[in-house]
Design a protein around this nucleic acid. Structure first.
Length: 197
DNA sequence: GGCCAGGTGTAAA
DNA sequence: TTTACACATGGC
């Protein structure tokens, strides 16, 4: 059994199930994926709560909302000028493609998401995995540190990391979902430990 | 007060 | 192809 499989057991035993985005609210997942770009999650939660409080966590409502009002609501998540536009683009795609997306082949869905302005590889893969249960392994800053730490890979391209996990684990959306969340849990606890030392 | 967070797009070397 | 920079809030 290779290091990637072993580390999954190890992280799971240490941190337990993370339960990331088991909500079936696609809008909330897409919004979260966009707002969390280079942003701490608690700030994203504030923004999402603002939208929820206004009953605005729905694609058509976000689409019809006046731009400055949307910016005001998502302000706590930072980069709100560009993120407001990105949300509108993403919601526009969601409204017309959410149904079809379920039946799409995973790389086809990925391609469509990547064509949306403001959605890069990590955001596209997060949406494909967490909103549509497609088996695509999400690579983020924590994953890169994790790979360096355990000698799995260093200085690779995004897709080099992704393929490394996908080839080791096989295409398993449930597993990818949990593993990515566990790596983030690992990264956060590691950072917390460092700042107290 | 400075550094950083579950990135992305654009422009210039 | 690589590197630099803008984008912005809130926690520590």
């Amino acid at each position: 059994m290779d290091i990637i499989k072993r580390m999954y057991r190890s992280l799971y035993n240490k941190y337990g199930p993370q339960g990331w985005w088991h909500s079936d609210n696609k809008c909330e997942i897409v919004v979260g994926a966009v707002l969390t770009q280079n942003t701490a999650w608690p700030n994203v939660e504030r923004a999402i709560n603002n939208l929820k409080a206004e009953g605005a966590l729905e694609p058509n409502i976000i689409l019809s909302m006046e731009e400055n009002r949307l910016k005001g609501l998502i302000r706590p998540s930072g980069f709100y000028n560009q993120k407001a536009l990105r949300l509108k683009s993403a919601m526009s795609w969601l409204v017309s493609n959410a149904k079809k997306a379920k039946r799409m082949e995973r790389m086809e869905l990925r391609g469509q998401l990547l064509a949306i302005n403001g959605i890069g590889k990590e955001t596209a893969d997060s949406i494909a995995l967490y909103a549509f249960s497609k088996p695509i392994f999400v690579i983020d800053a924590y994953t890169r540190r994790f790979c360096a730490e355990y000698g799995i890979m260093e200085d690779g391209e995004y897709d080099d990391y992704r393929l490394c996990f996908e080839e080791s684990l096989g295409l398993d959306a449930k597993l990818f979902n949990e593993y990515h969340a566990l790596i983030v849990a690992w990264g956060k606890s590691r950072r917390a430990a460092r700042t107290t030392n």
